[in-house]
Design a protein around this nucleic acid. Structure first.
Lengths: 200, 200, 200, 200
DNA sequence: TATGAATGAGTCTTCATTCAT
DNA sequence: TATGAATGAAGACTCATTCAT
């Protein structure tokens, strides 16, 4: 396996980024196993060879894509919570969060799908996702404390909440069982979250 | 693509089942994309060619495997709930359910992983899983009614509960974040479920 | 690396042999590194894929070729010696042997070249050659004894003789330094061999 | 193919030499086909591009290396013979020569291997080796005459001797057949050489 | 019905060489 | 003179699927 090289010149950096961006996009669109390296090269407007100077592997491209994605999906979430310095109305805040969550799921529907898929197929990717999930949990937990919402066992509780939210949003976006009313479900979700947060 | 044919003779039926069983096993063990059709044939003790008389596709084998698996994982769950004709002690029942759930996750760790992976990669598999999840929700919902636990919006609530349980068990079995105490989390999960069930 | 399969049907066996024969021929002709697998397939009149059912590797083809070659080069040599049940005239016998040796070198000029080349590049091939050289030495040694030519340290002496012969023939066939008179050299070689054999 | 250029400035000359030295070293170590041009550039501390200003080819680097090597292996041999102005004791001289020969083989085990390998793969390299072998033969031949050892057909005889020595040393260094006693063989080799030299 | 030999397009990856800077 | 980013053709190998027997 040849050495990977980090580009130094600006043009090259752009090129590397374009490979990640376009490659990840393609992989998410068509499925990791249904995209070939030459195809990625073509779409990114580079030659096949250059890919293997910047990445050790096809998988490597995906992983870099995942990292970018993780950040981009986590960041807005934290922003919301952070902005709400004084939480007067949980209900409104929750609405905002859920909406944002759904938005980011929608925004990169396929990406999220593919991410989960690969996480089960490749342990190194699974690790990245797990890590970012835990980070998320910790961050939210800290934010709550800052806002004087002191929970005992906050990590566990936040983790559960996070899971509920993720499930809900995921369903809304893709898997709509038609027998389920997602507005009602949303209210239920919110009730549960409030219950957890108040039941200190 | 040649026509698929259902075998009539007993020997042939056995053969077909062996392909499904061994094939699914292998796919779960090593990952769908890392198992070849000839390999499946070999392990199942049949010829390569015969596979394409019983199945239209490699994926077809997996799907048949999934169906079997779905049943086998859902069935014990429903049994428990059904047996508890008179629910006097929710807490105990929940413990039982959670333990059973964890058991079935553990039992077929790889299978479940692979299932999720493929569900994100292939929509026909996703559909199967979704369907079985909804069935599960409906069945549980009905069981509750039979036991005189009348919930409004029961489908939505049960669905949420199902999700919480699934998340929890999945984490316990595979992804244990070491900063999280899963005994405490279990108590929290139970509290939440009880809250939902009582908050009619 | 997929399993290698030995063909059972006659047609398949022929096919396998054709791959070895044509492949080895090609590799000898153009150099191992200058022949591609598809090219071998084409020349052998088979598909690329089948090659990897009979051979684990490109190198594997070469090795099988080497084995065939070793036999075919060693066999006639031994025959000569064996036939000469009563050695009355060493000189004549030596002439015969040398001629046969040269003939077999000439016959497969490139093969021998390539063999030596690969033996230095790949240890598994080197081993095959070494083994067959030693076998040769041992066989000749035994033949001499049978003919009541008892040498002390016969193995060592025969090995030296074998080397001298091999060098000589190789030179005659390919590397003719034009300043060297190979007829004279041949006489010298024979003298030396006779010296060794008589100097018990 | 771009024009090759010989550097004039001292720094550039050093650079060129470093490429030859490091490149040849690497090729010998890992095998010609397992070393890439960029790798050579890296090890030599130059840029990829510069290589193609000093050398027309990857092979060109190897050839230059071979030339250096040939000299370095032939030189000490000739020195020995030259120094022994009055040859009183052939036996001792032979011992010295053989030891020196073995030493130079050992010293650059891989280089010698690779050299032989390439000589069979590439005719231009074969030529270099052949030439240097013949030179060696001629030099030794002349040295013998200087020392009043007049052989008829000296070229042929020396060539044979050279071959015997080379075979012997090569075997000792790399291919030790374990059934062969190399001390005994050495004595036999010496006997033969003495026979040739005395049998004028 | 069953076999397993055969196919060949397709995959990832490498590397000698060129060329813009 | 020198750099090192870029090229892209070519290589070894895989595998779902077909087909002669």
């Amino acid at each position: 396996m040849s050495e990977t090289r980090l580009p130094k010149q600006q043009g090259a950096i752009d090129k590397r980024n374009r490979i990640i961006e376009k490659g990840f996009e393609l992989m998410c669109e068509k499925g990791y196993y249904n995209v070939s390296t030459p195809e990625i090269a073509k779409v990114a407007g580079v030659s096949t060879g250059i890919i293997y100077q910047y990445f050790s592997d096809k998988k490597d491209i995906f992983i870099e894509g995942v990292k970018n994605y993780s950040n981009s999906i986590m960041f807005p979430m934290l922003q919301i919570i952070e902005k709400s310095n004084e939480i007067k109305d949980f209900n409104t805040l929750l609405d905002e969060i859920i909406d944002k969550f759904i938005a980011s799921h929608t925004m990169s529907e396929k990406a999220h799908e593919q991410l989960l898929a690969m996480s089960h197929l490749d342990s190194s990717i699974a690790e990245i996702i797990n890590t970012s999930e835990l980070e998320m949990t910790e961050n939210i937990s800290m934010l709550l404390e800052k806002n004087n919402i002191m929970l005992n066992n906050s990590l566990e509780k936040v983790h559960i909440i996070y899971g509920i939210l993720d499930n809900y949003c995921h369903e809304v976006v893709y898997h709509k069982h038609d027998k389920i009313d997602y507005n009602i479900m949303k209210e239920n979700v919110k009730e549960i979250i409030l219950f957890v947060l108040k039941n200190r």
